[in-house]
Design a protein around this nucleic acid. Sequence first.
DNA 1: TCAAAAGTGTTATGAGTACACCCATGC
DNA 2: GCATGGGTGTACTCATAACACTTTTGA
Lengths: 256, 256
Amino acid sequence: MGPRGTPPGEAMNDNRPAGYDPYAFEPFAVTVDLAVFTVRESRLHVLLVERGQEPYRGAWALPGGFLLPRESAESAARRELAEETGLTEQTAADLHLEQLRTYSDPDRDPRMRVVSVAYTALVPDLPEPRGGGDAARARWTPLASAARLAFDHDTILADAHSRIGAKLEYTCLATAFCPREFTLGELQQVYETVWGVELDRPNFRRKVLATPGFVEAVEGEPRRTGGRGKPAALYRAGVASALHPPLLRPEGRQQT
Amino acid sequence: MGPRGTPPGEAMNDNRPAGYDPYAFEPFAVTVDLAVFTVRESRLHVLLVERGQEPYRGAWALPGGFLLPRESAESAARRELAEETGLTEQTAADLHLEQLRTYSDPDRDPRMRVVSVAYTALVPDLPEPRGGGDAARARWTPLASAARLAFDHDTILADAHSRIGAKLEYTCLATAFCPREFTLGELQQVYETVWGVELDRPNFRRKVLATPGFVEAVEGEPRRTGGRGKPAALYRAGVASALHPPLLRPEGRQQT
DNA sequence: TCAAAAGTGTTATGAGTACACCCATGC
DNA sequence: GCATGGGTGTACTCATAACACTTTTGA
């Protein structure tokens, strides 16, 4: 059958181009890339690191790195995320991490063949990252200012942005952007920021509360002020993960 | 910055575990796996191949194979698909292929480290495949009978099934299961088969026709009979790719 | 003439929208 | 008091669900 049946070093089979031998070529390297988003001051931000080496020295890039020999891509992503953001391993282990897709263009890295598995993470507003070792800087960058990244990271970032926008429609993911306890106003801000639209507050409220398991009210009287105005009730993320029916963004509905 | 800045053979940086050198370990192999679906006799079928070598000799598996040195994962997937199904390269090039996700568990292949990029393809009912070389057999298998596949292919197949089910809700993908010209009854069959539910014909019909660009009527009087009953009008896939608003499966709506 | 599949019509329900209005707090 | 955000009420619109009914073919 297929080439999978013939690992490098074993006999050829005729389903493989004549003369193909994995050891005759440079090995593939496998990396992970992370598009980590947060909402800050009503703008979507992404975590970027500055490259300290060629190629793309001095350019900004998505954090990421090589898989260790006995590590899955998701473990590698969590490890890199912890390293780059200064999060504890525990916090990183609990984070919502989602595989975006894999980028495998043969020329995506000018030096060698690198296949990269991209992940998306959504985090609440975190302290400024402490940059990895090796003279690297890391920082939160408004998405609007994140352009001309190294490698194909502009593409990955665009894919990630579009994916999370879509995900907000039919999952409860938006709560991942919020701290453990949050107000419905903050949750609405997440949607408005990611989608770049304004939503009707009364309707948003009803929609969220009508979806069982989306949010759960925090007991007692605890309320929090967002500055001025009436203090808002606090909620925590609920147990549901999917939104049925979905919460479609306004643009997604205007044909008919 | 991150390890990506240090390809194998260059200097270490302290963001990488001490002593790590990609050449000191077995190289990663990168493969593609394909979950190719079709609808046959009102049942969802998947294309499987029989393994001719250890491990899992004699077991059924998803078709797939190694990436060539200068080939993207998607190109590899199209190439493998053409090889396994006997499709022409041209047909394979036009097919709807979608990246599912990447599987990277260190132990997913007992012999070596293999990272596999899985793809999903939807095809109309095709002739029986002609199996690849090397004594392999290939055949369409009802999804219900496809179990205990080699490697982690049970997992991949389950993920693929659940993904296409979800995709039918908010994309026009169902037409990929149909021949170039099809009736609305056939299109409805696709939904009913993939979702495993019955839909109301009048409502389905209205919904499809009300979505601009989903299908376009074939001009003139051409009608086709599906055996007995009134001949149905023929349609072709339209230009739209997304469904707004989505066509939710019944189960996805029964909470409130 | 009957079964089977295509196609049309109609009504009730419920989700989504838009917008008016009241409440609580800081300045 | 007034600006600011939280929270409630309501009426209109439109998509969907459910189901009755007609049409056109093969046997």
